[in-house]
């Protein structure tokens, strides 16, 4: 009996470690900034792309939900995503705030001319520092917030069909 107890006590640590390794194999290795979900977005102030004024969190007041989308004309996946965003705007009536990330003004404008403009207003983040406040690490990225500016969901990479369904489910609840 004593002997068995000894074995169990000595073996328990390696078995525990191996078990953790087994569990770790099942894990998704993709890194996301999911810890921001449930938090309020930080105040921001950005120059507008089309007008001379500034836009900030006050431009979001009155929206039940807002999708904040980070994009740039030089980003290839943003091009693919554009049509999905237009679909969201038209079919779900969701207000989309565009944040133009490290881009040139005229390039951004041409992009919208070529592919269509899904945004109701666009802010310019010239050096990318404001995006850091939103936990952005690569574009495209999108953040869905509610009327209290609480982050409901983060989308890393382009918005796709299943994301569309998910957004639909959230805002129609």
């Amino acid at each position: 009996m004593n002997r068995i107890l000894k074995y169990i006590s000595i073996l328990s640590l390696p078995i525990f470690i191996l078990l953790i390794f087994f569990l770790a194999l099942e894990r998704e290795n993709q890194y996301t900034t999911k810890n921001l979900v449930g938090k309020k977005i930080q105040d921001f102030e950005l120059k507008s792309l089309n007008q001379e004024n500034f836009i900030n969190q006050e431009s979001l007041i009155g929206n039940n939900y807002t999708l904040i989308n980070f994009w740039a004309s030089w980003c290839a996946p943003c091009r693919e995503e554009n049509s999905a965003l237009i679909k969201i705007k038209n079919q779900l009536g969701l207000k989309i705030l565009g944040i133009n990330f490290k881009d040139k003004k005229n390039h951004a404008k041409n992009f919208l001319k070529d592919y269509g403009n899904p945004y109701y207003t666009i802010g310019i983040d010239k050096d990318g520092t404001t995006s850091v406040n939103f936990g952005v690490f690569g574009i495209p990225e999108s953040i869905l917030i509610d009327k209290n500016f609480i982050i409901l969901k983060k989308f890393i990479g382009p918005i796709e069909e299943e994301d569309f369904m998910e957004i639909k489910n959230i805002i129609n609840k």
């Binding site: 000894k6 074995y7 000595i10 073996l11 390696p14 078995i15 191996l18 390794f21 087994f22 194999l25």
Partner: peptide
């Protein structure tokens, strides 16, 4: 791949410890 090496590793570790004890 990981699963295979891990199984191999587990056998090795458990066998070594039990033999040693």
């Amino acid at each position: 791949r990981g699963l295979f090496i891990l199984m191999f590793l587990s056998v090795m570790i458990l066998f070594s410890i039990i033999t040693f004890l």
